[in-house]
Write a protein that binds this DNA or RNA. Structure first.
Lengths: 295, 295
DNA sequence: CTCAACCCATATGTTTTCGGTATGCCAATG
DNA sequence: CATTGGCATACCGAAAACATATGGGTTGAG
């Protein structure tokens, strides 16, 4: 069963004439006649009544016509849908994000995305530092908003911004009275550390910052999320050095202060599989850049 | 867009491998690979991700797969439906019948039809003597139960039975006392005549009957239907010579009596267009014969 | 580290099928 | 009887599909 035959069949049925249909199909009449007869042979029954004034569907032909025109429409629609998905006009984009960025970026990013790619279903998933690579690699998220960037040979990274580090402390802390905290004041104070997933904690941005200023802060706790870090800070367990944007999700009772002399910052990046050919990624990147710009 | 390509595409998508799909399709692997690439070229986007362990649908491919498998099913179903209609297992049969036969034949015929061709939609239309030919010729009925048969070069006829003529009269008529009415008693009595559509009324079966017995009955009225004839008989306008089966639809107050010495009968026939190739006609004919047999 | 296995892609020749042109047949028309 | 209109058939050249042979990449075992 060839789709071309069905197309010809529908054309002849509508034109009620082989000649007229051939004209509309921009082909000669004889081959069309042959194709119709082949279709009839394939079905095993006449589909048209040949009269002296053209052709007329038999009942078997009518039964076929209903399905055939629908099948044609479906096939055309399938091709169109596939093109639309490939062009990024339809489809699904699953966006992963790390919790730190949720409050700072998502409120700007989501409306931007909906405006840019209205036909696309979006879904969002929070990523933890430990699973974000796997989620990209197994394609359960297409694109991820990360801080800092992921380093992996299969994963492509675009840096879209950076956040300075700030010191998070309880509002009652004596350091909170200062406008900006000199690095020296941190010496010896307990630190709530995050495992930035550069695997080796010593190489993390915070560790590097402290090492460069020759400050030693004993690690009071090591936690997975910014969330937990702030809870421990609030409980008086220690101080945390966090990207500025964490401020937006901070509970009452925590204050952030800039670190004087510390120009270090941590990258905000968009990451995706290098082999992912989704055209939505480019659009996503533009939206993300726009959403991050004011920071 | 070729249906074969879609079939190949679905096979590869399901097998998640060109080689496996080729095996299932009983063909070599390279041409299948080529066909898939041609489909991708036609769509204008990759439909599969080629991995080292087979192929995997892209999102565009998924969008196509949904429609493609549906289109395939629809096309197959269309062919099957056309075959079923051609074989008389499905479809529509419109049956015309003349009023005289309604009471005698339809109650047996309809259940018989439903049993024989359960997948077929039946519809019934009452035919008048004057339109029955036209209804067959323009195909608004496929098959007609007629009394008597239609004579027309385009119309084929099968005689399935015959009904003797009887005399219809008011119950109070003196003739009603006789068990069988001798033809001679009809001499000079007014007749309610029907225009059996052999166009020339003189050639109708009733006229022939009277002529053969050398009886003259003045025509009191000429009416279109058996119905009307019986009404006029009841009103005392005259007598009518009707097929025996008309008895079943007769109003109270009318009695039927056999005509002694008159062995004439009128055919019950099934008629259809000579060029109608519907296989339902044969089945209908069998059912009609069975329904008429006990008469 | 090399080798075999696996799987998809490409190349080439043969066969099938399709579309075009020329023509025949039949019925309706004048 | 000739003409017209419409579908069917015959034949030929072109295009497409399939099969066989082969290349290249990755995986996994020895």
């Amino acid at each position: 069963m060839d789709l071309r035959r069905l197309r010809y069949f529908v054309a002849v049925a509508e034109a009620r004439s082989v000649g007229k249909a051939a004209e509309r199909l921009r082909m000669a009449q004889p081959p069309l006649s042959v194709q119709i007869r082949k279709l009839e042979a394939e079905i095993g029954a006449p589909l048209f009544r040949r009269g002296t004034r053209g052709m007329d569907l038999t009942e078997a032909g009518q039964a076929l016509l209903a399905r055939a025109s629908e099948a044609l429409a479906l096939a055309a629609d399938g091709a169109e849908a596939a093109r639309a998905v490939a062009a990024g006009k339809r489809g699904r984009l699953s966006v992963g994000y790390m919790f730190v960025l949720a409050n700072a970026v998502l409120p700007r990013l989501i409306p931007e995305l909906r405006r840019s790619i209205p036909g696309v279903d979006l879904d969002f998933a929070e990523l933890s530092a430990s699973t974000r690579e796997a989620r990209l690699l197994d394609r359960s998220v297409t694109v991820a908003l990360c801080m800092p960037a992921i380093h992996h040979p299969e994963i492509q990274v675009a840096r879209i911004g950076a956040e300075p580090f700030m010191l998070a402390m309880p509002i009652r802390s004596p350091l909170a009275r200062l406008g900006a905290v000199p690095m020296a004041k941190l010496q010896g104070r307990p630190l709530i550390a995050l495992p930035w997933p550069d695997h080796d904690p010593a190489s993390s941005a915070v560790a590097a910052l402290l090492r460069r200023h020759q400050i030693v802060m004993p690690i009071a706790s090591r936690v997975e999320t910014v969330h937990s870090a702030m809870s421990l800070v609030l409980a008086g367990e220690g101080l945390a050095i966090l990207p500025a944007c964490a401020q937006l999700g901070a509970p009452r009772g925590i204050v952030f202060r800039p670190l004087r002399d510390a120009t270090d910052s941590i990258d905000i990046a968009v990451c995706w599989r290098r082999d992912s050919q989704s055209p939505l990624i480019r659009t996503f990147l533009k939206c993300a850049e726009k959403a991050v710009a004011p920071l």
